[in-house]
């Protein structure tokens, strides 16, 4: 077994005519928290879906647990996925099941454990996220932060080796944000997980990550430990880590010259 749990080599992917990735290389080391950061719309969620085999790359190689994801058969892929957990941005709890049933779901479909054992495991996982008392609530009755914690309990129900977080900090109030940050860090240490966090909340992410990549314009523009990134002199990294509105990573979506655009409309109005 290599030290790298997931490897992405020279990944190309495009949606419709827009290229999302053009030549991305990533390495996720066992037992670490790896962060993938970048401005919105750089395809961070897409990257996770590619790792989980929900999307197929145009070219390049993605391997997880030393298996090339895109080459796997449907059944082998589902088997591989049972070793991964993923926390979706919205939580994605099954709305027709209670909190308890949501967490029990992966156990029910992948194991033949007796009901008492399922119950114990579910309660352990719920206790880990501090929501053992909320087990009988329906997802609609939960707050956003609680939803994400239940989803986290569900993602770790099968004790996966690799846990992927999609924007775990978005839209959280400072308290639940702090709770989540601590939770992710602790879970990684206690359960010996490997984690990938995809996020644009730089401060929180860098505070727990062991290694980070910054994506922009379809490629990795910088990588390193949080300390290295913060000390970096590279302009893009400075802009991103410092949170400056404009810089090498443009604030504007590509467009024609602004004054020309305005004049163009004025001319058309004249004609009319």
């Amino acid at each position: 077994m290599t030290e790298n749990l997931a490897v992405v080599e020279d990944l190309h992917f495009s949606r419709a005519a827009t290229p999302i990735f053009s030549g991305v290389n990533l390495r996720v080391r066992r037992g670490q928290i790896t962060a993938v950061m970048g401005p919105s719309g750089t395809g961070k969620t897409t990257l996770l879906k590619l790792l989980g085999g929900q999307l197929q790359p145009a070219s390049g190689k993605i391997s997880v647990f030393d298996q090339e994801v895109a080459r796997l058969e449907r059944s082998a892929l589902f088997k591989l996925r049972s070793r991964m957990g993923m926390l979706f941005q919205s939580g994605a709890l099954f709305t027709d099941m209670s909190v308890y049933e949501n967490v029990a779901f992966p156990l029910r479909v992948h194991t033949d454990l007796p009901e008492t054992m399922v119950r114990d495991l579910v309660l352990i996982k719920l206790e880990a996220v501090g929501l053992r008392g909320a087990r009988d609530l329906m997802p609609a009755e939960l707050s956003g932060g609680m939803t994400r914690r239940v989803a986290l309990a569900r993602a770790i129900a099968l004790d996966p080796e690799l846990l992927m977080y999609d924007e775990p900090f978005v839209g959280q109030d400072p308290i639940s944000m702090g709770v989540l940050v601590q939770l992710i860090k602790r879970l990684n240490q206690v359960l010996g997980l490997t984690s990938i966090i995809v996020s644009h909340d730089i401060g929180e992410t860098l505070s727990i990550a062991d290694y980070a990549y910054i994506l922009s314009g379809g490629r990795v523009i910088a990588e390193g430990t949080p300390a290295e990134l913060e000390a970096s002199k590279q302009a893009e990294v400075r802009q991103f880590v410092g949170g400056l509105p404009d810089g090498p990573v443009p604030f504007h979506y590509p467009a024609a010259d602004f004054s020309e655009d305005l004049f163009g409309i004025a001319k058309e109005a004249d004609h009319a």
Binding site: K49, G52, Q54, R74, F78, K79, R81, S82, M84, G85, M86, F88, Q89, S90, A92, L93, F94, T95, F105, P106, V109, H110, A151, R154, L158
Partner: peptide, 17 residues
């Protein structure tokens, strides 16, 4: 709605088709 709220995706990632 299940698709929009990523329930289908998350089911896939749990390893259930």
């Amino acid at each position: 709605l299940m698709k929009a709220t990523e329930q289908l995706s998350s089911m896939e990632m749990i390893g259930v088709d």
